[in-house]
């Protein structure tokens, strides 16, 4: 019996086989491959289904896809408290090379939601990403940390969740279910839109859309596309509700298909270097 999952391969990769990924092979190749960079923390779990749907859509369009978990996230090795931003960037580079090696395609584009988008932009030069598409990326780390801190404090006092509010000391050094080490906190706090790479498409579904939010990215306004309805990223009442968006999947797939640039198939030497 053959199912669509036949084309999906779960595996561990990286020098020490610490990273988990699922490779979606494409029956035909469009000369490019897509790396899906997951957001961190609870956003990753909420977006899991959507990332899988996007991977299916891209693979059906002839674009091989790799979804992966950074160290300390998802099924990858490491504990949640060990996640570090610099390690996430190097994991993204490793994943991009793994995708090249598996697909035989050198031209890798990346997609990321929230911190996954910021990660794709930060890793783009080192990972030699040909293009980046982002969805509500985090461009102001300081404000993002303040939001997560406020949500964490509200969560511990939420009497719809707990019979009684929980003491602050029990809820410290964590954001919405995940341990956060001080180093990661500081790294995210310092995030700013000072990346070398500019996304070719930004999908904006923040509840309060503002052109000012994306100004730091120095993007052409025509490259910013509004998605409705707004995504409840920071709604505590929906902390455990999956984030799904068919319009997002359609928009990203259409954009990635349309992106054209010289295609360079990998030669054996490059393939060998990536293995």
């Amino acid at each position: 019996m053959t199912t669509r999952t036949e084309a999906e391969l779960p595996f561990f990769f990286g020098d020490r086989h610490e990273l988990f990924g699922i490779y979606h092979a494409a029956a035909r190749t469009a000369g490019k491959a897509a790396l899906l960079c997951a957001p961190l923390g609870q956003d990753q779990i909420r977006c899991h289904r959507l990332y899988r749907q996007l991977a299916h859509a891209l693979a059906s369009a002839g674009i091989p896809v790799l979804r992966f978990d950074c160290y300390g996230c998802g099924d990858s090795l490491g504990e949640s408290a060990e996640v570090r931003w610099d390690r996430c960037i190097s994991d993204t580079v490793t994943a991009a090379n793994e995708l090249r090696a598996r697909s035989g395609v050198d031209r890798v584009l990346a997609f990321g939601a929230r911190l996954g988008g910021s990660l794709a932009l930060a890793a783009a030069p080192a990972a030699h990403l040909a293009d980046v598409v982002v969805w509500d990326p985090v461009v102001d780390g300081h404000a993002y940390v303040a939001t997560l801190d406020a949500m964490q404090d509200a969560l511990r006092q939420d009497t719809r969740r707990f019979i009684r509010p929980r003491p602050a000391e029990l809820a410290g050094e964590q954001w919405l279910g995940f341990a956060v080490n001080p180093e990661l906190r500081e790294q995210i706090n310092g995030l700013a839109a000072d990346w070398e790479t500019t996304p070719s498409l930004l999908l904006d579904s923040l509840p309060q859309p503002s052109a000012q939010t994306w100004k730091a990215l120095a993007m052409d306004e025509t490259s910013i596309q509004r998605l409705e309805p707004p995504t409840p990223w920071d709604d505590l009442a929906k902390l455990e509700v999956a984030i799904l968006s068919h319009s997002l999947v359609q928009a990203v797939t259409a954009h990635v298909q349309a992106v054209s640039a010289p295609v360079r198939a990998l030669n054996a030497h490059v393939l060998g270097a990536h293995r």
């Binding site: 969560l155 019979i163 029990l170 964590q174």
Partner: peptide
């Protein structure tokens, strides 16, 4: 004292 999905570490 705990919640349904054990959100605290």
């Amino acid at each position: 004292e705990m919640d349904h999905t054990f959100v605290l570490v």
